[in-house]
């Protein structure tokens, strides 16, 4: 860290699960924050408060970005993980619900048919993109929306008996 709280080349100041053990007031709006990581090693981070903007070695932030709890919650992190269709379709049990209004453009499977886990059941369109929606589990397809149908946000695309 240089004298202005800016990160130097190659210096990794982030450490897993580090916690703050001391805040020192250094100058007008300038603070030295001492972090201690799990293994007991300490690192000093110099930040500067400029009104509602806080300058850290990781970049400048508006405080509102940092004080809202949702930003760093693990739950949010998980939202991006999992299947590649997770951003569009919610799977709960064997029910596939859409998170955005979509149009069903093609249905590959009929009710009563067996489907494998990961097998594509239907194709939906949103934002001019076509997306294949796979079955979340192996089982029997109980219910499926019709080709050409518009499904509102939260509507059911299909239901699989797992």
């Amino acid at each position: 860290m240089d004298g202005h709280g800016r990160q130097q080349h190659g210096e990794d100041t982030t450490s897993r699960n580090a916690r703050i053990i001391e805040v020192r007031h250094e100058d007008a709006g300038v603070y030295i924050i001492v972090f201690e990581s799990e293994d007991g090693s300490r690192s000093n981070v110099r930040v500067r408060v400029e009104g509602d903007i806080i300058s850290t070695p990781f970049g400048s932030y508006h405080v509102s970005e940092l004080l809202s709890a949702s930003k760093t919650s693990k739950k949010r992190r998980m939202a991006g993980k999992g299947s590649s269709i997770g951003w569009l379709v919610d799977f709960e049990g064997g029910v596939a619900r859409t998170k955005l209004p979509v149009k069903v453009v093609e249905v590959y499977k009929k009710p009563g048919e067996n489907v494998e886990e990961g097998e594509v059941v239907l194709v939906v369109e949103t934002m001019k993109m076509l997306n294949e929606v796979p079955s979340p589990c192996s089982g029997v397809l109980v219910e499926v929306s019709k080709s050409g149908a518009g499904v509102p946000q939260g509507g059911i695309l299909f239901r699989v008996e797992c």
Binding site: A18, Y31, V49, T56, F58, L66, L67, T72
Partner: peptide, 15 residues
């Protein structure tokens, strides 16, 4: 995420 977490901790302390 880790950088954000540390920045949030600092912001909470200071603000």
């Amino acid at each position: 995420d880790e950088r954000r977490r540390m920045a949030s901790l600092m912001a909470r302390k200071l603000y």
